[in-house]
Design a protein around this nucleic acid. Sequence first.
DNA 1: TTGTAAGCGTTATCAA
DNA 2: TTGATAACGCTTACAA
Lengths: 364, 364
Amino acid sequence: MSKSNPPPADAAPPPRQARRGHGRVTLQDVAEVAGVTSITVSRYLRDPAVVAAATAARIRDALAQTGYVPNKQAGLLASGRSNIVAALLPNLSNSIFAETAQGLSDVLQAAGYELLIASTGYSLEREEHQLRALLGWHPAALVVTGRRHASGALQLLADAQAAATPVIEVWDHQGSERGQRRARFTQIGFNHREVGRAMAAHLLQAGHRRVAYVDSGVAEDYRAHERGAAFADAARGGGAQVTVLTAPPGDVFEAGRQVLGEIARAAKPGVTAVAFANDHLACGALLEAARRGLQVPAQLALLGFGDFSISRQLSPALSSVQLPRYEIGCETARSLLDALRLGKPAVSVALPWTLAARESTAPA
Amino acid sequence: MSKSNPPPADAAPPPRQARRGHGRVTLQDVAEVAGVTSITVSRYLRDPAVVAAATAARIRDALAQTGYVPNKQAGLLASGRSNIVAALLPNLSNSIFAETAQGLSDVLQAAGYELLIASTGYSLEREEHQLRALLGWHPAALVVTGRRHASGALQLLADAQAAATPVIEVWDHQGSERGQRRARFTQIGFNHREVGRAMAAHLLQAGHRRVAYVDSGVAEDYRAHERGAAFADAARGGGAQVTVLTAPPGDVFEAGRQVLGEIARAAKPGVTAVAFANDHLACGALLEAARRGLQVPAQLALLGFGDFSISRQLSPALSSVQLPRYEIGCETARSLLDALRLGKPAVSVALPWTLAARESTAPA
DNA sequence: TTGTAAGCGTTATCAA
DNA sequence: TTGATAACGCTTACAA
């Protein structure tokens, strides 16, 4: 497994200063052991069939004997192309984006691509910073979350796209509403305004006329804000009174509890249904309602977003919006692969979601 | 932002075949704009103070004008050293390991290192595969989870360590128990046998004499198995009868529910306390107990592991083991940085955990 | 089927 | 303070 440095070649003039590697086994080393040149080993690695059977066997032995590990830096630099897809997601601790990452990873890995993931913590500033860092790897394609970016990031993305690097925005899909600017990049996700409207419609349909939306406490969770705005518009349009609250910072379950407390303390009198920016908030509220002896849905209906696995476990089970979390990743990866290998330009896709009506919003 | 290819040099003989890059801006391009050579720009990038003020200003302009993004492949290849730390974790969707990743990332990024993460899905086979792939980046250090690895992976890790690449095993710490082989690599985590014993002690102390351990349904979650074995040993040693069950596959909350069903259906008569491999299982059981009208802890005490944020929200609140999830990441990163920059060999650390006793195991 | 030469974009070394 | 030159380990293009 170790590498024997051959004595210096006899005839060659001694180089000014050899700065030989880190003792790692190189293609050269393998080639020497196999009695061929490095290019032959390189070829064997790419496609064993192109070298003679006997040579292949010797190379195989040499490979095993030396424990060769190809140097990706060198390979990528030499080939000029990269098999790296860089993805920027708000976070990974949240199962939402982790599943998207899994989807990307599953499809890309099967195709021999490397996935480089960075998380932005829902900060556009950090996104730009991370993007700059990722760009240093000269990725073959870029995946970012949502359509809002810092201006510097926007410029970098536009430059990349101009240089024929596919760029996909995930977790959003603008559609073709009036007043919406045309999308700059391919989008794979769903329309948050539609979801917001559907959430409002669901509550109105159950007869609620005083409703609230509890927005994410994360300032830069623009998609949550957008759902909230659409929810409020639609509810008002349907003749309801709407209150919009913002979740306090800190543990999200606790935040949900607190908000429910606020609502229950008659600070928001008459509210009979609450929609939340995410299921964690809604679960916190659901548990707090139980603690306070508040009947759900009889006295207060609760509606979540994201359909986390805990939600359907609680009693009453939480109504929520089921999202194509994993599918967004898979679809994006497939799109990217088509673009990279077949030159087929990536096209925006609206992925389906459904509002799962459960007990927490069941009409009386 | 775009790059102007200068006309070919006048005197030089034309190269056989130019294979100029992908249109990306290089150090060379910046240098031309600034009227210096590439090495000067390189120096400026490393430390702006080493070039003359006037030169620095010109370079700064050129940098901005060209939108230069350094090529990491080339830089790493040339310098021979890498600022990459590669980490292999069982998964990222689970908040447990995501927090460790966050800890690693936070500390490493501040120090200018890159974190490359791959997930193994709790499969040693996948771990070996992923390790091989990561090694291609020639990382400066390696982080793996636990002390069990496929034999091939073990060999790769040993080789890396022999080549002075620090290797740290996280989420485990063997300590110096009898019958335990000495650790091969630095370990940063905690002792799962100790935790298993503490869980047993906690239940025995509350007076339970018939207890059960619900092991993880994930076959290769060796740490959970180890806690279970230690739990059983300790409980038996304390004079209790022990049943060990294994969670069925599928949704973890559902698995917890099912297992509780099994226990409640008098299939395991007399069991008064159950410890679980993780909080999700325990939460599922807690919710199922409520559904069945089984009093917790009066009729059945439940004890989790991991202290997920939902656990303390349920009623009764779940007793659980609080883990240094984030700290494992930070401490590992710090250790690695010391090893890489100061040459200080990484040393194993047992990080503290605590058993948070809540209502679900409160003695009558 | 295999080899030679050149080059990928950067940094280390030495010289000026 | 700046530059020339040679690597780093691999792949492309072309020749044999």
